[in-house]
Write a protein that binds this DNA or RNA. Structure first.
Ligand code: ZN
Ligand code: ZN
Ligand code: ZN
Ligand code: ZN
Lengths: 163, 163
DNA sequence: CATGCAAATGTTATAATGTTGCAAACTCTG
DNA sequence: CAGAGTTTGCAACATTATAACATTTGCATG
């Protein structure tokens, strides 16, 4: 057995967040994209949760800390972050999660625990290949893949629901 | 080359719809589920379009034909139809489409054309297997899979956008 | 047939999610 | 600094989905 994936066991999540922000700054710098304070703060808020955050969750957090924000503030920041591959939108949850493989070419596959709400992003080339093959067989030109798996994470299978 | 899949070429779609309704009646009868007039009409409206319909599209059609319907009317019918595997919800579109393999055990994979809006539902065991394998490797217990591929259908790759 | 229960529907209101349009402020460049 | 392009503030609005409660319907049973 391999060790449990990071979101499923205790760890210094502040370090994850710092790393993600550092990566984001680097990615944006390379592409001359402006990671403005609001955008960076939204990214940070999203990373601070292992569970995907809804746009209005983010909005509430911004408002709570005195930021004068409206829905477009958040949606624009999220659009930017998605565009540069820093966050993903989880369609089945109407929520957003930090990309665990920012900068790398990948097709996100999300394992979403229905009990604890945590999400693990996988990068599995063989899944991506199988999907491509199936689409090609129909002469379909693939552009974006939405792959979200709902179920029970290791922790919650045992009944011990964790945060 | 195999022939194009059904939605991508002209065919007698009325026959598709009739068949789908007949199947639905049979499936419901077997399970003692009541395919009431409203539920059946919603299923028919959804099948009559190769493009997924939003709940409010369905509502508008019902209203247009004199049915005294409100949002819950439609959402309840859709919930029922989903429960018995007669329609699928496409999360990335907030819309619903008739299930092309009702009654069969399957993981739906949807090819969604961003140009013409048509959706083709595939049933590909090797894709399902690859996803299961990847999830199992993380000790994740899969319950439901959302797999939606956006891109260009064969017709629209040539530039000839069709209905 | 009358009664009673459960499932289904009607009805109104409201919640949750996402967008448009325009003006003001900011940032970079020459 | 002037001008262009980008980002933000702000108000209104659009779309999607649900809650709560009353009413009706279908069906089994006495
Ligand atoms: Zn990612
Ligand atoms: Zn869990
Ligand atoms: Zn199906
Ligand atoms: Zn097309």
């Amino acid at each position: 057995m391999s060790a449990r994936a990071l979101p499923y066991r205790p760890h210094n999540h502040d370090a994850c967040v710092s790393q993600a922000l550092a990566d984001a700054r680097s990615i944006c710098r390379k592409q001359n994209a402006r990671l403005t304070p609001t955008r960076e703060r939204v990214l940070e808020l999203i990373w601070q949760s292992h569970k995907p955050l809804g746009a209005y969750d983010v909005l509430a957090k911004l408002t709570a800390e005195g930021h004068n924000a409206a829905p477009p503030t958040v949606y624009r920041a999220l659009d930017f972050l998605q565009q540069y591959g820093l966050v993903h939108r989880i369609a089945s949850l109407n929520a957003f999660t930090g990309c665990a493989h920012a900068g790398e070419q990948h097709t996100g596959m999300f394992l979403i625990c229905r009990a604890c709400g945590n999400v693990l992003e996988l990068m599995d080339p063989s899944v991506a290949r199988a999907i491509e093959t199936a689409a090609n067989a129909e002469t379909f030109r693939t552009e974006t893949i939405t792959l979200e798996v709902a179920g029970l994470c290791p922790g919650c299978q045992a009944g011990q629901h964790h945060e």
